[in-house]
Design a protein around this nucleic acid. Structure first.
Lengths: 217, 217
DNA sequence: ATCGTAATGTAACTTTTGCTACAGATCGCT
DNA sequence: AGCGATCTGTAGCAAAAGTTACATTACGAT
């Protein structure tokens, strides 16, 4: 079980032994809640398979996805809570069938002290998130929704230029409404940048989409 | 010189010796640029006196303050850049006469490996920022400007309930325009929450300001 | 004391976004 | 094939915030 974590942590022999003792592997299926807001965090969460989704609710009740955690990634918020003795500030649910390795808090702290690999991973993870969040903030107050959506689509398209998400999901990601997304899509479609179908957006002209807002409209 | 850093870092004897060798103290006066965007980061910046201001420009040319660094705090972005070999993603200027201890990158990394105090400080600093940023993001898509301004004022008032900033500065902090701030102030003043003068906002009724948006208007 | 500069106050207008309310389309299931 | 559920498309109105433009007020320096 613990072997799957190796590639991410790069541990010494002692570290591996310690880890093997303490890790618990948990499984979650499709729409399963992993952590509630305000919950005590029991340890570091390392996703090995599947995907977790971290989100909050706005006072109006709409939810906004903060980010996903893919295999090999940890939940940074949980790390934060561990190191600062805080309660978890958001919700987490399984976005697919997911396996998570939970490293109990005390063990994680011990590993952090002794294992350079764990330290590196921790700092890198935190740093990456800081940059992601700052970028997000900058975008929010320097771009309009259309530019943010364009960027989001380009960023999340697969190799065939398809983004397999419903407009509802897109809107939660951008913290806006479904109607808003539909309206923007209409604009994109009118210019031939994009075509839509149920649950899929297909990028037709990435160039133009990337330059959206610089030129027309 | 290095002694002023002690309280923040809590070092062993070796650590102190190492630090004493390598630290440089730099001084900056009032409107002095400390770091440019895209610059290589030479080390960790620890402010001992005065205040630094970290900000970015939006494409429209308006600047938005990200945060301040007060005595005892370090520049998290610089830490980030150090650990991930990135270029600095914003601008920094001295907001007052400021003294900064610069711990060169290599030295900082060495201290990080050997000194628990430095590790703690690093992780705590990063974590704190992550929370601050997330809170900011959440606020942005769940509060209107009036609520954000109210909160900002309450948060930044001194012991006499005064916030010594121009409306221009307030607007950069919230990523909006000066006129917007003036408009909101008018609302606050009308309700008697606040009074304004050149360069100062004085909170008259903190209770009401805190509950802004829940009740009236 | 006066003059220039920076800060504030105001107002009308425009754009963007959110909200409400449907209508139509697509999918899976029985 | 029929039905319900989910997803998408549209439209109109309201609220929020940005834009432009200018008047007024405080401060500081000479």
């Amino acid at each position: 079980m613990a072997e799957t974590l190796e590639p991410f942590l790069d541990l010494s022999a002692q570290g591996r032994a310690l880890l093997a003792q303490g890790v618990q592997v948990k499984r979650f299926t499709r729409p399963g809640t992993v952590i509630h807001k305000g919950q005590q965090v029991s340890g570091a969460y390392l996703v090995t398979h599947g995907r977790l989704r971290v989100y909050t609710y706005s006072p109006q009740g709409t939810e906004a996805t903060l980010y996903f955690i893919r295999p090999g990634e940890t939940c940074v918020l949980a790390l934060n809570c561990l190191f600062n003795d805080l309660l978890y500030p958001a919700w987490v649910e399984a976005d697919a069938d997911t396996r998570v390795a939970v490293i109990p808090g005390a063990l994680y702290r011990r590993l952090f002290e002794t294992e350079a690999g764990v330290r590196d991973m921790t700092v890198k993870t935190l740093s990456t998130l800081v940059f992601r969040l700052m970028d997000e903030l900058e975008q929010i107050h320097s771009c309009n929704l259309d530019q943010r959506l364009a960027r989001f689509l380009l960023h999340h398209a697969d190799s065939e230029g398809k983004v397999r998400m419903t407009q509802q999901q897109l809107s939660s990601h951008l913290g806006t409404t479904r109607e808003g997304i539909a309206r923007l899509m209409r604009g994109f479609i009118a210019e031939g940048c994009v075509s839509t179908a149920r649950g899929v957006v297909t990028i037709r002209d990435a160039e133009q989409l990337a330059g959206w807002g610089d030129i027309s409209r």
